[in-house]
Design a protein around this nucleic acid. Structure first.
Lengths: 190, 190
DNA sequence: TACTTAATGTACACTGTGTTCAATAGGCAG
DNA sequence: CTGCCTATTGAACACAGTGTACATTAAGTA
């Protein structure tokens, strides 16, 4: 009972692979269970033994991605270190195809939203330590701005516009983040 | 032939109203033509006389919104004036319900993407005049960052977090935009 | 008022869904 | 290696939504 049946592992694996293949050409909302199973060479009923919708499958893929890359997220959260950020982007770049789907539109906005919410509390905690003289509300305001912008730039970056290295890319995002904080002190002089 | 038949106008209007009602509870991808027509009290065949998918209808709604509010977009594009920006946000706030749907997730990411692309060339032209010493690529980089962040903040703002006035909100976005430009000069020292 | 055409009601074939159930095939433990 | 266990299969089912066609009705327009 410790590990899943070999057959189940195979079924889930091939379903994920097939879904990712389909997501290269169409958004998750247009993927049917029927075509997914045909692509995977499985009986349609087999799908229902493990999932209810294609979206369940995508969430599982996302979960694995986050679990695997979270070792790069956490260090950056603890100490605001651009090198750690560069390592994260290197790791993302190594899974280029998968990342492009997850950060892109065919994977629905759910993944980027998930990342933003996941990282939010830790980052805000850090920021409160670093900028104790700012309101939490203002920091939250800047957080949502910076991370939405960052997610867009990551997508652009993965889509190949510019071909910047992970280090330079991390450096630029870091710069933008720092300068955004400087804007806070002007928020009140409206 | 100058104006559409009164009956057609009524049909399209009630279809739009019904779609917006449904979009308060579910994303566009889950709206069926059948339920839409039931909501509108129209025969299902009538829908096909004017549209192919619910998405066509949503695009038409977006188009009208953009046409109507573009008078506020353009002045801001020409001269980077926070007051114009505040007027735009006032106008958006006046159509609060509709804006919340269009900028939110049930209207798909297509609307915010559309706005970003629509405004991009004009803004970049302005920025090139204002910052002639910066690379266009760097300005584009900052543009995508700033506008994705701004779209998120608009959504948050419309969702009611904070209840800031249109003026203060515009002022803050303006601040963030200006400080993001300052980051460019550090991009090259990687 | 007569003309024009939008909207209706009905019907049809088609695709995908979600479920059931007996039959089969393959992995796993003893 | 053998026999048990269970994942997978294939077939069938009712159901919901799609897209189209066509004759009929209703309403706006000139």
């Amino acid at each position: 009972m410790k590990n899943e049946d070999t057959r189940v592992q195979f079924t889930k694996k091939i379903l994920k692979d097939s879904l990712l293949k389909l997501l290269k050409t169409k958004p998750i909302t247009r993927v049917t269970i029927k075509e997914l199973c045909e692509e995977a060479g499985l009986n349609r009923g087999t799908f229902y033994l493990h999932y209810n919708e294609p979206n369940d499958l995508l969430r599982e893929i996302e979960e694995e991605f986050v679990q695997e890359k979270m070792s790069f997220f956490n260090p950056y959260m603890k100490n605001d270190n651009p090198d750690q950020l560069a390592m994260l982007f290197s790791a993302i770049l190594q899974n280029h195809e998968l990342s492009l789907i997850l950060f892109g539109h065919n994977g629905a906005p759910q993944f980027t939203e998930r990342i933003k919410k996941l990282v939010r509390p830790g980052i805000l905690e850090d920021w409160q330590r670093e900028f104790p003289h700012y309101d939490l509300a203002d920091l939250q305001f800047v957080y949502d701005f910076v991370f939405s912008g960052a997610m867009q730039l990551i997508l652009n970056w993965l889509s190949g516009s510019g071909n910047i290295s992970a280090e330079i890319f991390a450096h630029r995002l870091d710069c933008l983040g720092h300068y955004c904080h400087l804007a806070i002190k002007e928020f009140r002089y409206a």
